[in-house]
Design a protein around this nucleic acid. Structure first.
Lengths: 157, 157
DNA sequence: CTCATAACCGACCGCTTTTGTAGGATTTAA
DNA sequence: TTAAATCCTACAAAAGCGGTCGGTTATGAG
């Protein structure tokens, strides 16, 4: 398996936040119930998303979480990376801040690193797929019917 | 990390076999020494490759392993799949024999599966990268110099 | 003020996978 | 007969995964 349920649950969480039309936060327990996921586990995941600056939280009663940016501006590579750690096909791969891919045993023997060509291509394929998908797309895909542009009940706006 | 060292070691093993110009088998210990990998672990990996029909073995003294097909006809998706198991981005994904992608909790709630769009794209990216790379490419990439088209020493052919 | 709600935090825990090691059995060329 | 190999199974340390639990802090409502 390429990814664990951390990515699965976390993306679902993000989609659930993206489905919310208003600007009021939703509690984790609401998300947990809607997606039938364990609340305590979601707490760990949402912490990663918050540290990555993808969601904001408000504490106390009627608190909860909101997207930190509009869903159109959130690409899934940042979401998955926040949840799973750096996306690399292999342990020896690390991406520099400038986006260059390095292999730790590059040329450590007498020959070129035999596998670098392959992993570079895989890396490119995954990155392209993730970075080319926005949260807004997933929100739209998840349920184009249930969310007309209506304001939440009792909204003063 | 997308893949474990099983894929890394196994691919290196395949490349090493592909580098061999003649048709005589090479022993695992030779591969282990050349790539500085633990022999006993390679035994497990090569067994998977053999079961998948990617390499053939000859037992006894002067035995060893050979590619079952020419390197040009071996695509890396079959190699990686033999080593790591089915390539799917998520636990809930399984590919049918006809190549169709299924998600096990497709529509189990009232809405469409929110993440299927994303994982399908990732799956496509990885598969394309792996299936679009042949072992021959990696062999060429690994050392275009050290293997001119010369027959092995003492070859009767 | 107090109480319920909800974010926040860290420790723990059983399970599976990973990354090997070890020991032996079998086959085969010399 | 012996040495070189594949082959096979069992074992084991370590890490990651999926999840639980208990407690602390912040905050709006009554």
């Amino acid at each position: 398996m390429l990814f664990s349920t951390k990515a699965e649950y976390g993306v679902r969480l993000m989609v659930e936040l993206g489905r919310q039309p208003g600007s009021m936060p939703i509690s984790l327990s609401a998300v947990a119930e809607a997606e039938r996921l364990p609340l305590s586990y979601l707490e760990h995941l949402v912490a990663k998303l918050r540290n990555a600056g993808l969601v904001t939280s408000t504490r106390g009663a009627h608190g909860g979480y909101r997207l930190a940016k509009p869903a159109e501006e959130i690409t899934m590579d940042s979401v998955v990376e926040a949840l799973e750690g750096q996306i690399a096909p292999m342990e020896c791969f690390h991406e520099t801040p400038e986006g260059k891919v390095l292999c730790s045993h590059e040329n450590d023997g007498d020959r070129a690193c035999a596998t670098k060509l392959l992993w570079t291509r895989v890396q490119g394929g995954v990155t392209k797929a993730l970075a080319g998908t926005t949260l807004a797309e997933l929100v739209e895909f998840s349920g184009p019917d249930a969310r007309a542009e209506r304001v939440p009940v009792g909204s003063a706006a």
